[in-house]
């Protein structure tokens, strides 16, 4: 089970709405390298994982990804408030707005609804951990930096950057653990 904490992992207060930023940042929620995919990937892989340490990391990292889902959703909610029809059209948010108004719907920036086709759960230790490493490796290149460079609002940049800093080596650590302790090979 999970217990909700009534606070964000990192506080977010957007001073100035900006629908263009929202239309880019939405990919961090429901896109191919988004938080919803990350949470689903880690939490789903746990059940076939044979080692307690790895299950612990998948549980706790997966839980933290849910907190990131909430942070990105907050960015989207605050960036799209008080908009006029003209601002929506000018920002290119009109195609999203016609279906979802300013509801926070997990999709990619190109409009593909969130899908678990983005993730891999194979029931095999090394296949799953390598999937996790590959997903983690998208962080510096594909994830926040490309989105950060679109933005100048302090809270958007800082909160996206927090995620960038959290590019930890957890999965590298467990693969080393696996190799050293269990296989005694690497």
């Amino acid at each position: 089970m999970w217990i909700y904490e009534k606070k964000l992992q990192y506080p977010i207060h957007i001073k100035k709405p900006n629908p263009m930023y929202a239309s880019i940042i939405i990919s961090q929620l429901g896109g191919p390298d988004g938080e919803l995919g990350a949470a689903t990937r880690y939490l789903s892989q746990r059940f076939s994982m044979p080692y307690n340490e790895v299950i612990g990391i998948l549980t706790d990292v997966g839980t933290e990804e849910l907190a990131h889902v909430e942070m990105i959703s907050t960015l989207l909610y605050q960036l799209t408030r008080d908009l006029t029809p003209e601002q929506i059209a000018k920002a290119g948010l009109d195609k999203y707005f016609v279906d979802h108004t300013t509801g926070v719907y997990p999709a990619s920036a190109a409009g593909t609804p969130f899908t678990t086709a983005y993730i891999g759960v194979k029931g095999d230790v090394l296949a799953d951990l390598n999937e996790d490493l590959a997903a983690d490796a998208t962080i510096p290149q594909a994830q926040p930096l490309s989105k950060i460079n679109f933005t100048d609002e302090k809270w958007v940049r800082t909160s996206l950057f927090l995620k960038y800093l959290k590019n930890r080596n957890e999965f590298e650590i467990v693969i080393t653990l696996y190799c050293n302790i269990i296989l005694r090979t690497c």
Partner: peptide, 8 residues
């Protein structure tokens, strides 16, 4: 917590 998961 994450560190301790890998280093109990």
């Amino acid at each position: 917590t994450l560190y301790l998961d890998g280093h109990p």
